[in-house]
Computed example of a mutant assay.
Amino acid sequence: MNLPTHQPPAATVVPAFFVKQRITVMVNRYEIVAANPDGSEGDLLAFAEQKRMQLKEEVTFYADQARNRRLFSFKARQVLDVSAQHDVHDENGAVLGSFSKDFAASLVRSTWHLSAPGVEAVGQERRPAVAVLRRVWDFLPVVGDVWVPFVFHFDFVDTVTGATVMVSERQKTVQDRYTVTVPDPRLDFRLAAAMAVALDALQSR
């Protein structure tokens, strides 16, 4: 992968991790877990909570489930906007980057824009046929209400070089679980983790 020589690696780089979702009555909880070289799960990197029924979407990531230390977060700029820009902040409130959903393109194939220092990327569902099938299923009068674990993946590529920036692959499990790889060292882990969680938390918005 050819990277601009003037752009150094991000402050926090994690080349691979897992995202695991736990659904409760009032909040969705996500565990961000490091991926060991052998593919097994490593240490807990962050714990996130998404409160439901918020006018302005916000998800906060903590060091662990005790929620004593805030690590980073993302928050929508607009209220109830499916294509709202979301800013990712570090623990001190500084902006690390942003992402947004391309509403028009997503009518056929879910598309996201991801921005970071030195990086502009576009992410799309890998398989157009699965994207179409998911939309048809939702509109069917009976079976649309039946939960089906469609396995869909997202590939984010640099808009300048075409190189892969980030990949999120959904695993075949009952609960949502994703394998995320970040081959581009310019992409900060906190921004990658926020984007990975948003792909699940905001995908149906």
Results as ranks from 00 to 15, higher is better:
Ala46Cys: 10
Leu55Gln: 04
Pro183Ile: 00
Pro8Asp: 05
Ser106Pro: 08
Gly144Ile: 07
Asp38Gly: 12
Trp147Tyr: 14
Ala196Ser: 06
Leu191Gln: 05
Gly93Glu: 04
Thr181Lys: 00
Asn2Phe: 01
Trp147Asn: 15
Ala76Asn: 04
Arg205Trp: 04
Phe139His: 15
Leu114Met: 05
Gln171Ala: 07
Glu91Thr: 11
Glu49Gly: 09
Ala201Arg: 00
Ile32His: 06
Tyr30His: 09
Val25Glu: 11
Asn28Asp: 14
Ala34Phe: 09
Leu187Pro: 01
Val82Gly: 03
Asn36Leu: 13
Asn28Lys: 09
Pro15Met: 00
Gly42Trp: 08
Ser73Gly: 00
Glu169Met: 08
Asn68Ser: 11
Leu187Arg: 03
Gln124Trp: 07
Val157Gln: 10
Val14Thr: 11
Glu120Val: 15
Phe18Trp: 14
Ser98Cys: 08
Ile32Trp: 06
Ala46Lys: 06
Arg77Val: 06
Arg205Val: 01
Gly39Pro: 00
Met195Gln: 02
Arg134Asp: 05
Val108Ile: 08
Asp64Pro: 02
Gln171Tyr: 01
Glu125Trp: 03
Lys20Phe: 14
Arg135Cys: 13
Thr173Leu: 11
Pro185Gln: 05
Val82Ile: 07
Val95Ser: 03
Ala201Gln: 01
Asp176Pro: 04
Pro149Lys: 12
Asp176Lys: 10
Ala201Asn: 01
Glu125Gln: 12
Asn28His: 10
Val33Leu: 13
Ala192Met: 00
Ala46Gly: 11
Pro4Ile: 05
Val142Ile: 14
Val25His: 10
Ser110Asp: 12
Phe99Ser: 04
Ala131Phe: 12
Gln171Arg: 09
Asp145Ala: 14
Met53Lys: 03
Val82Pro: 04
Leu187Phe: 03
Ala76Lys: 02
Asp81Phe: 00
Gln203Ala: 10
Asn28Arg: 10
Met1Gln: 06
Trp137Ile: 00
Glu41Arg: 11
Val108Gln: 05
Thr179Trp: 04
Tyr30Thr: 08
Ala129Phe: 10
Leu202Phe: 10
Val174Tyr: 10
Asn92Trp: 05
Val132Ala: 12
Phe61Asp: 00
Leu140Lys: 09
Ala163Trp: 03
Leu71Thr: 00
Asp158Pro: 10
Asp87Ala: 09
Glu169Arg: 13
Phe17Lys: 07
Arg22Asp: 15
Gly97Ser: 09
Pro141Tyr: 11
Ile23Ala: 03
